[in-house]
Amino acid sequence: MKAYFSAFRMRWKMELQYRGAVIGGVLCQIFFGLVLVAVYRALYLGNPQTGMRLSNITTYVWLQQAFFRMLLSSDPELMDKIRTGGIAYELCRPVQLYGFYYARITAQKLMGSLLRAAPMLLFAALLPEGWGISLPASLPALLLAACGVMLGLLCVSAMECISMGFTMRTLDFRGVYALMNLLMATFAGNILPLTLFPDSWQRAITLLPYAQMLDTSIRLYTGAYALSQAPAALLIQAVWIVLLVSLGLALWARNQKKLIVQGG
């Protein structure tokens, strides 16, 4: 437990060291947020939608931008190890590698996105109504959304471990990785809020693992999911976490076994 804690702290220090890059990244993300909000505003003013308020969409955009970092792959060191083949040595060791890297990736994502989300959300809160982020639907909604973000984080990390697992096998990391990441951008709602997808699609899309990462929490926050729907939404997240983690575990274990057999 202490080891995990110090991993968190190290990451925090590292993030602070590159504060120039962090500030640049945040400004850039804010800029993208403004552009998107402007487009959706123009769309809304031209053709007001029933059943969905503009402020919900802008809130969606800002929350996506703020936690965008969470979706990105976050462990360049591990990637390097895989590319250079150094991972083979680690896989040969009789330790639970999956757990170690899962914790590490989660820590990196959490630290990276918290550091960026705070200033961005502050900025978005200062924008006028119809541009910025609005208050949560209710206090319970906020708390449920926070739970959702945590579950979403566990879900993204499990997903990343799976793509890492595939990468170790094919060694052609860029292709597989890019594909996984790109599906993520589209179906996690980063390119277009999932709430704007055709209603008929939404039923299926919200069940995909990608939607569990941020979309669920945002819907809880804005009240698109009523409090009565919350347990079901959180349950879906939990189910995906269990599924993705067990898949990842199996994949890593197989990689490890295969390497040991070959490594003789």
Binding site: A42, Y44, G46, N47, R174, V176, L182, I191, L192, F197
Partner: peptide, 27 residues
């Protein structure tokens, strides 16, 4: 594989425009 990834990426961007048109009709 990398070319395919590019296709997915730009396809996703294009999909966003198509879906926007589907919902809002005009800008």
């Amino acid at each position: 594989l990398q070319t395919l990834a590019q296709l997915v990426m730009e396809g996703g961007e294009m999909l966003a425009v198509i879906l926007i048109v589907d919902r809002f009709d005009h800008l």
